[in-house]
Design a protein around this nucleic acid. Structure first.
Length: 573
RNA sequence: UGGGGUGUCGUCCAAUGGCAAGACUCUGGAUUCUGGCUCCAGCUAUCGAGGUUCAAAUCCUUGCACCCCAGCCA
């Protein structure tokens, strides 16, 4: 497969992409060559089930699962459920659904950190016996004070030199639930003067008499991340423990615990997490958007959550391709949202069935079209993919066209319909606008046109060709649709950057426009949620789960690129 | 003023002492029954200052900027 070749780039459109070089691939490649792990690659994706996965997690998932896949290894899905206070079954389910939807398979390797609690507990006792862990009676507040600061060393706790026997006895009582929540902790005995604060006797266990979603009330103490994570990796035989940059400082601790216990010792490798323009990525902020009803839930189509993107109409392929293209490195960066949109359009262009729908209808009466006549016209389902075939669309003397495809006083470069001008109706006839009907308010409410019967199918015998082709829907056959036009959730490239951190001030109050009177061609009759279409000349749309029998609801996934909009913007503003 | 990281086009990201790639964005053009797609062309980059070398993004010295760390969160 040539996958061990050091190829750079080469992202030819559409086809499978060749991996971009990155430092993690390099490391694994080297390890494979040297036989460091016996030719095996084992990675893991270790989410804490305390929230929904978002596009940032998608990057991690692609790296974790992708690395294993690429080198013929395995990737474990492991719930890092060491804090029952925050975790919930709902999140476990959503995480599985999202990882699977993204296109990854953990096979039989779905694990829970909580399944290792027994083992981890034994190891803690071993560490105590080695004199490398102790029970501390200090309060949380005192521990903080004793820890020192970034520039000053910490102080030893008075409990630091307890005997092994006493520590063992106390720890057993902790585990038995004999002490109150928060009254004692087990700490590693490392170095209170370390310049790395993580090494100043980190807490290994805290007392927490909470109900665990899998363990019930069995445990009264729960291990901390730093203590548990390396052991979880070790138990599973992980070779490359990939995580984000903020854990770089924790690596010495990761290594220390595993070294003390002389167990299998994976290599922790850190990479930069994903930032995207025009969005926020922290769980806290996303939760706030949900809780304060700025959006309609975790799967609101404006959310960067995987469930939100799915509902918005993103394809897993487009997200995977995006994750490959952004690369993997160690520097903080913010990827242009336009790249995500590009990957989306690229994928949808290949796959989405074309269909005609009018989002802001304007009635058109074709005066010389025979009364009551209906013709069926062939239309191509996808010009990018002939195998998707054709369909028939009804044509009649009363149609809807898009309001903005007509201008009474056309500016320069406006090629669409205006009084006296001829345009082509997609797959249909050429029509010429003869009259404009207005209401009392002076608004255009109807157009009278004539058609040229010679131009059926879109070609004229005399070879003339209008500058514009517009889409349409036959009025008597039209389906009523609701269209939800979603836009960016934030106005600012970096929400909160210019508002003293108050990202809510950068919310785009126009991020959702609901259009209730849209018209669609009859082929849109039987659709199911997540079905994706291109509404010709407008954009990509997908069926929302809130569709009813009476009315199908479409979410605008992303608009088509729009040259005309650019021209307007340039001359207008 | 502790420790750990990172600085390459506007934005991502390559280069492993040997001609600074590619993608996205943007600009111009060709084509087109979608102002879509496609195609062609163009734009702009090695944080600064010294040094080593025939040759430096890469090595050395030094400075600067930015990110992370003082949870009984992960």
């Amino acid at each position: 497969m040539g996958k061990d070749e050091n190829r750079t780039d080469e992202n030819s459109k559409g086809e499978a992409t060749v991996p971009v070089a990155n430092f993690i691939r390099e490391i694994i490649k080297e390890d494979m060559k040297s036989g460091r792990w016996g030719g095996k690659v084992v990675t893991r994706f270790p989410p804490e089930p305390n929230g929904y996965l978002h596009i940032g997690h998608a990057k991690a998932i692609c790296i974790d699962f992708g690395s294993a896949q690429e080198f013929g290894g395995e990737c474990h899905l492991r719930y890092d459920d060491t804090n029952p206070a925050k975790e919930d079954q709902e999140y476990i389910d959503s995480i599985q659904r999202d990882v699977r939807w993204l296109g990854f398979d953990w096979g039989k390797h779905c694990y829970y950190a909580s399944d290792y609690f027994e083992k981890i507990h034994m190891w803690a006792i071993e560490l105590i016996k080695q004199g490398k862990a102790y029970v501390d009676d200090l309060t949380a507040d005192e521990i903080r004070k004793y820890r020192g600061t970034l520039t000053e060393p910490g102080k030893d706790s008075p409990c630091r030199n307890r005997s092994v026997e006493e520590n063992l006895a106390l720890f057993e009582k902790m585990a038995n639930g004999d002490f109150e929540d928060g009254s004692r902790v087990l700490r590693a005995r490392i170095d209170m003067a370390s310049p790395n604060i993580n090494l100043r006797d980190p807490v290994m266990y805290r007392i927490l008499k909470a109900e665990h979603h899998r363990q019930g009330r069995r445990w009264k103490i729960y291990p901390m991340y730093d203590w548990a994570h390396g052991l979880e990796d070790s138990i599973e035989g992980v070779t490359h423990s990939l995580c984000s940059l903020e854990f770089e400082d924790h690596r010495p601790l990761y290594d220390w615990f595993l070294d003390q216990l002389s167990v299998h010792h994976p290599q922790q490798i850190e990479f930069a997490r994903l930032n995207l323009t025009f969005t926020v990525m922290s769980k806290r902020k996303l939760k706030e958007l949900v809780d304060k009803n700025y959006v309609a839930g975790w799967d609101d189509p404006r959310m960067p959550t995987l469930s939100g993107l799915r509902r918005r109409g993103f394809t897993p392929e487009s997200i995977r391709n995006f994750c490959e293209r952004i690369g993997v490195a160690k520097r903080d960066s913010t990827v242009d949202y336009a790249l995500l949109e590009h990957c989306l359009r690229e994928d949808l262009n290949k796959k989405a069935k074309r269909v005609m729908a009018v989002i802001n209808p304007l009635k058109v009466v074709i005066k010389n079209y025979p009364e009551g006549m209906v013709e069926m016209i062939d239309a191509i389902n996808n010009p990018e993919d002939a195998s998707m075939g054709t369909r028939q669309v009804p044509f009649s003397g009363v149609l809807y066209i898009e309001k903005n495809d007509f201008m009474e006083v056309p500016p320069k470069k406006f090629f669409r319909l205006s009084p006296g001008r001829e345009v082509r109706l997609r797959y249909g006839y050429f029509i010429t606008c003869t009259d404009v009907v207005k209401n009392d308010a002076g608004e255009v409410v109807e157009l009278r046109c004539t058609y040229d019967p010679q131009t059926k199918g879109g070609a004229a015998p005399d070879g003339r060709s209008p500058k514009a082709t517009i889409h349409w829907v036959s009025a008597q056959h039209a389906l009523d649709l609701e269209v939800r036009q979603y836009d960016k959730l934030f106005n600012s490239e970096a929400p909160g950057a210019g508002t003293d951190g108050d990202y809510l001030k950068d919310l785009n109050t126009d991020s959702l426009k609901v259009l209730l009177n849209c018209k669609g061609e009859p082929s849109l009759a039987h659709v199911t949620p997540e079905d994706k279409f291109q509404f010709e000349r407008i954009g990509y749309f997908c069926v929302d789960k809130e569709s009813t029998d009476e009315k199908t609801v479409f979410n605008r996934t992303v608009s088509l690129k729009d040259e005309w909009a650019k021209i307007v913007k340039k001359s207008g503003a």
